[in-house]
Design a protein around this nucleic acid. Structure first.
Lengths: 95, 95
DNA sequence: TCGATAGTTTGACGAACTTCAAAATAACGA
DNA sequence: TCGTTATTTTGAAGTTCGTCAAACTATCGA
């Protein structure tokens, strides 16, 4: 897992909101953009950060590009976060 | 909970390592500093970020300042993180 | 009170981040 | 092929971040 990329990705409120919106199902870039007050260019940059963290996938569908959560990594992410926020076992290696 | 401060705090590897170290028990600033290759001034800055997020507490003990995890907020933090990384209920309000 | 020890605060710097406007790319329909 | 729509990429500006060195504060022991 790209730990540092994941932490960087979720450190921004806009990107967390994107993840939240995608929990309701896949959405095109344009649909997502309606929920924000920033330009589509800026939002596209955020999509790239989320992609670099492997948190979302995208697929062209005609003229649109549809984003969806990459649920396969969510378990890993949750595990790392819980390791950081639960005092228990774990090898203690910093993430 | 200071959501944004928490996310910002955990976005840096040095600060995550501090949290990890404190999971092994309270430590003074100097003891923590031994685990890093940056100046004490820089580390002190990281302590401030962790304090702003309410993730750690500190207490003077003689000449030393002892840091410890503020475990009371860890449950809240874990809940927010799981809300972000688990597709389930929740009001969908972005964190 | 003085000197030593433990940490913090300040000021400065380069790197990284967020944003916008504008240009570029891609796919569709006529 | 041309124009339109959807989205990304580029280039630039301003802001935030992580770091250091140096100055500062607080406590202890003599």
């Amino acid at each position: 897992m790209r730990t540092q990329e994941v932490f960087k990705a979720i450190s921004d409120p806009t990107r967390r909101k994107v993840l939240k919106l995608l929990q309701g199902g896949s959405k095109s870039a344009g649909e997502l953009a309606e929920a924000f007050d920033i330009t589509k260019g800026s939002l596209s940059h955020h999509f790239n950060v989320l992609k670099a963290a492997d948190l979302v996938r995208c697929e062209r569908r005609g003229q649109q590009i549809v984003y969806s959560l990459n649920t396969t990594v969510f378990e890993d992410v949750a595990a790392v976060l819980l390791d950081l926020f639960k005092v228990d076992k774990g090898n203690g290696e910093p993430s």
